[in-house]
Amino acid sequence: MPEPSAVTLTEESDERASTTAPEHQDVRTGRSPGQVAWARLKRDKVAIICSVIILFFIVVAIFAPLLVSLEAIDPITKAKADPGTVHTELVDFNGLPTVGASSAHWLGVEPRLGRDLFARWAYGARPSLIIGFVAAFASTVLGVVLGLVAGYLGGVADKIISWVIDFFLSLPILLLVLAIIPIMQKRLAAGGDLTPEETSTIRFWVLIVILVVFGWMGLARLVRGEVKSLREREFVQAARAIGVPTRSILFREILPNLVGPIIVSASIAVPAYITYEATLSYLGAGLVEPTASWGRTIADAQNLFATYPLWLWPSVIGLSLLVLALSLLGDSIRDAFDPTSRR
């Protein structure tokens, strides 16, 4: 898992852009760094386009049932499409679909099983987005808390947390994840027998937990470093001197100064986690049938790519576009928060 990148806040590549004068008025208005960044972001065309794309996928995921219900009733099966029901009457004896893309199946049907591919694609956006955002949120919280504690308390707490960070960073994560998922699944089943739906649900939450457990270190280290330097600044010293409780110092005085790096780190974590979910599902360690997942679809479809490319393309394009949009948006957010960049 790529650590949600330890963002370098000192980027000096923007000298050439400094000719655009109007930007300077931002600096003088006395707004908070967040407001400055927001104003900058609003004027960033790439950020706007990426946001629209991301919003599109979120809408697809949320309204997947509605979108799928817009498909016409299949003339052969006399049924509305849904992501789970198999319709083997729509494939021939060698498993290839006998029907192409139509008003009943916007992206055709799945070879061998005859499930509606548009429904699987739309529902497939759900696990990607949920896992990406939930895991990014949780790992951010974890990273910030541990970073704050380590940086502010120092001493033994810092030593322990730093050691844990280094330890987790040194683990061969992909290998470990491939090994851990079946073990955790077995543990959670506690010797009981699992139906495929239960297995998939367990895998879903296990994936999130694993992404969080192996994804917080980068941010924690970043926050720890920042806190260490902020701790010695005058306003913190002053707060301490007048007896402000430690919790207030941490969350009132120090944390607001870290909003920039935290948001940047979180926005870069989301696409990383989505890629991870797809990779693990592709490798067979992630989500299982009957859950629709883009990674699984890509794994299934690649062998039949020569004969039936329509199976592979939507998931590949969906995944690539979403990850690209999230990454570029993360970049834009970083630029917007970067005081040295003047775009």
Binding site: G84, T85, V86, T88, R112, L113, P182, D193, L194, T195, P196, T199, V288, E289, P290
Partner: peptide
Amino acid sequence: QKVNQVRKQKLEAAGFKVQDIGVP
């Protein structure tokens, strides 16, 4: 896994209750 999806759905459609236990 895919074969099981098909078998389960078709047997359920035929009035059976299906407990499909997944194991390695």
